[in-house]
Design a protein around this nucleic acid. Structure first.
Lengths: 118, 118
DNA sequence: CCCCATCGCAACTCCGTAGTTGCAGATCGA
DNA sequence: TCGATCTGCAACTACGGAGTTGCGATGGGG
């Protein structure tokens, strides 16, 4: 429980990657438009191609996009698998909180409020 | 579709908040331990109380935690609702990608590859 | 074969923000 | 009432990363 699992570490990478609005927009656009190059992505945005490349590298490090070489071009596609890890992490936080709520409700029902355990 | 919905904006706030590992740890711990003060949270961590307070303010801005004044203390609790917006956003990206895949498969089945529509 | 377009690497600037410290106000216990 | 804590506000520092520019390398088209 105190040790971070592999899923946790991948979820951390996903949240780090998705913490930037530019990267969120890139991921959404790649998912919509299909395989696309960094140059094409930069054409629609007010930043340089190199900035896009850096963002794509971060997304690739999180496993959210994969690059495929086609001729002299580098086309990026979306990989949705890491999103599951992030969703799992959020579900864990939510369920822990829900369990906490249930415990509190039960204790409150059995006795008069005696103060928080801790 | 081109206009950002309210859910999108809240999801953005959630991802911004969860982009920091310290804040992810704080949210997990608050969810586990129940209502807790910034001073108590700072005791377990190698940072000052003020740093914790700032992180809690960011989490509160995203709606992930709510503060309740009890005497002279300020106890923070988890609110899981915004996590739904983030999960919805991720599901949208995933489903868009899946639809794209389905379209590609169909087109590939009907005719020889004629190039991407774009 | 030559030229043009695209990609990759590296150095640099700059702004946002995580973190600290200091102090004043508020609240509880004795 | 007085002291001990706990909180909140403000100014300051420093480090990471987002963005730019320049250049060399590589692959395609006329």
């Amino acid at each position: 429980m105190t040790k971070p699992t592999a899923s946790d570490r991948r979820a951390a990478a996903v949240f780090d990657a998705l913490g930037d609005p530019t990267r969120r927009g890139l991921l959404a656009e790649i998912g919509r438009s299909g395989p696309v190059t960094a140059t094409e992505l930069a054409a629609d945005r007010p930043v340089s191609r190199q900035a896009i490349v850096k963002h794509l590298q971060v997304l690739a490090a999180a496993g959210l996009v994969t690059a495929e070489k086609v001729g002299r071009e580098q086309r990026y596609t979306v990989t949705v698998a890491p999103l599951d890890d992030a969703a799992t992490w959020m579900a864990a936080v939510g369920s822990a909180w829900d369990r906490r709520l249930a415990k509190l409700a039960e204790r409150h029902r059995r006795t008069a409020p005696g103060g928080a355990p801790r």
